[in-house]
Design a protein around this nucleic acid. Structure first.
Lengths: 346, 346
DNA sequence: GCGCTTCGTCGAAACGCTTCGATGATGACG
DNA sequence: CGTCATCATCGAAGCGTTTCGACGAAGCGC
């Protein structure tokens, strides 16, 4: 049915290896022959069989995006990463596969990786101690983290610069006169599991507050608008004089706004709210629109894939630059002031 | 490095074909031999090379999810589809690849499909006349639509039942006494391009209104909260007496609430708003929480992939049931009343 | 106990490509 | 004008599976 390389070779009056060389450029081919081959390819509408190519070259064009997938779907912020990754992969001639593998059970990943289907992998939702990383290293699958483990020596990653992000968020509030700020983090479970962003923002917030001589207060709640309201109650219980909230918990942030409104607290006149690591489009949905540390979004995913592809090319060429060169990059979120932050009430 | 089937065969003292039969079940193997082979497999930590398998069996475990990917990322509602699809694929032993191919240029798809990397494809964001469908049919790649073309004879698809959904939404409002309802649809561009949901909801809304003897008024705006405000202005210009909005435009819906508030119109006392085809989690973010026709979300993606896998299995077995049996399924959204709909003001 | 099917297993031929060593043809050089 | 690289191309050997035909060994009826 579909044309094979043999068909092309026959039509162009060359051997199959010549066709292969024209396609891959692995050896020089004269202009005339190349033309003839390309013409034959065009005439037959030929394109190489990916499986055969993969088998023979023991190289695949598949990049795995490894991430836990709950039934509820990922938020807009995460979906931006995925997006950027898919686009970048596509642009580099690779294909991105979505692999639901969580950090809890490494067995499926071991399976997946040893089937040699993937040329490389990008890990999302990385924990401080992530068993998946060990599996990948052990099986020799090139990988890049979106996020990072506790120990990052020799590991390529792209992550958000939580320290800078938190420092900027707190700084913004402090400048407005706020001194009693509560941080609404992801769930207690995420914290206990060692989820990177959860743990890092907790620490970064504490540091940022102490820099200004302030006491950090943190509340951890599950996702969902309802839990945002709970966060407000808990925060007020812990510190009735709180004047500002910082939140990374996307859906809860909306609940915080609702909870404050319910209590008759106006935003930003009575209380300020700053969302961290949020996609601009999401921040715009709130009323008032949320002042936010906007996440680098698609760029993160794109950079991760580009780093991965780079690494693959390097191993392929195996040239002078030692191929164990790691790519480590932190991207800060950028402050975008909208309607939920203002001077502390006097 | 990695163990091959030959290694397993040697260790188990059988031929490679026997190992293959144990793995694929293509031929019966005695219990004793099977045990021996499985033991060898376990000992070597063997798992079959996906490429070699794919080449020899001309079957792949990759399902392509074909969808246009803007840099801005997909909304939570779409991401739920993707999610469901990825999970279902994974559960069925397949892998989902994310392929950014829009309906505008079919060339990349032709490339992709003729490389025989994909066992099948699921198309998202289907237009009434979608060139991608022709490409897939022509190249003989099994496919399922998430959405549907104008003519659906012989085509498998899973889609939202826009007729029922709109009828229910309008019915809900009419029962509350509303008679002047405006539908806020996706952009004029989407409408002109023949985007399925955009066109179908437009028609369904008109039908639903006429059933009640009401005049359908529709406004088409781009995505984004800002455009929701524009929609409100435009709606009031078209009919100053409007008492209710129906909207499918996710981000604009939030803008509608903002726009109404700006004008001093209270929701739901003065004006009602019903969102259609929206994920519950998103509806909860609004204040008040949105009355919505909730989209089947992950189920849609899951069903599509299951239908596709079914079709693949059937072509494989090529048994009595004619393998051109199509799967066509419409899922309605379900009404969930929250805080944005109420009796018409008297 | 003779032919017969049935069952479990084997060997070898694909599958469609990449890659390596080899081979003529070509041109440079002394 | 013979010698040696150099260059473009060829042929063949894989890559790790699946799958098909074949073939002994049992098991069956008579």
């Amino acid at each position: 049915m579909a044309a094979t390389m043999t068909d092309v070779a026959r039509l162009a009056n060359v051997s199959v290896s010549t066709v292969s060389y024209v396609l891959t450029g692995a050896r020089p081919i004269s202009g005339a022959t190349r033309e003839r081959v390309l013409a034959a390819i065009a005439e037959l509408g030929y394109s190489p069989n990916a499986m055969a190519r993969g088998l023979a070259s023991r190289r695949s064009t598949l990049l795995g995006l490894l991430l836990p997938l709950g039934e509820d779907g990922v938020g807009a912020t995460v979906s931006a990463f995925v997006n950027g990754a898919a686009s970048a992969a596509s642009a580099a001639g690779y294909h991105l596969t979505l692999n639901p593998v969580g950090a809890d059970d490494a067995a499926p990943l071991r399976e997946l990786a040893s089937r040699r289907l993937l040329a490389g992998a990008a890990l999302m939702a990385v924990r401080l101690d992530d068993p998946r990383v060990d599996v990948l290293r052990e099986l020799g699958v090139p990988y890049v983290l979106i996020g990072r483990t506790r120990d990052t020596t020799g590991v390529s990653f792209v992550d958000i610069d939580f320290d800078t992000t938190m420092a900027d968020a707190v700084e913004h509030l402090v400048r407005l006169g706020h001194r009693r700020v509560v941080y609404v983090n992801h769930s207690q479970d995420a914290l206990a599991a060692g989820d990177g962003p959860t743990v890092r923002t907790a620490e970064a917030f504490a540091r940022a507050m102490r820099v200004h001589g302030l006491e950090p207060v943190m509340v951890a709640v599950d996702a969902g608008a309802a839990h945002g309201r709970i966060a407000v109650e808990e925060a007020l219980a812990r510190d009735p004089g709180v004047t500002a909230f910082v939140s990374m918990n996307e859906s809860a942030t909306f609940g915080i706004l609702a909870g404050l409104a319910d209590r008759g607290l106006r935003v930003p006149q009575d209380v300020s709210v700053v969302s961290v690591v949020m996609a601009p489009a999401v921040a715009e949905l709130a009323r008032p629109a949320l002042t936010a540390m906007e996440s680098p979004g698609a760029a993160l995913g794109r950079l991760a894939v580009e780093a991965l592809v780079d690494q693959l090319d390097r191993t392929d060429r195996r040239d002078e630059d030692k191929d164990k060169e790691v790519h480590q990059q932190l991207l800060p979120c950028t402050l975008r002031v909208r309607g939920t932050s203002g001077p502390v009430r006097s």
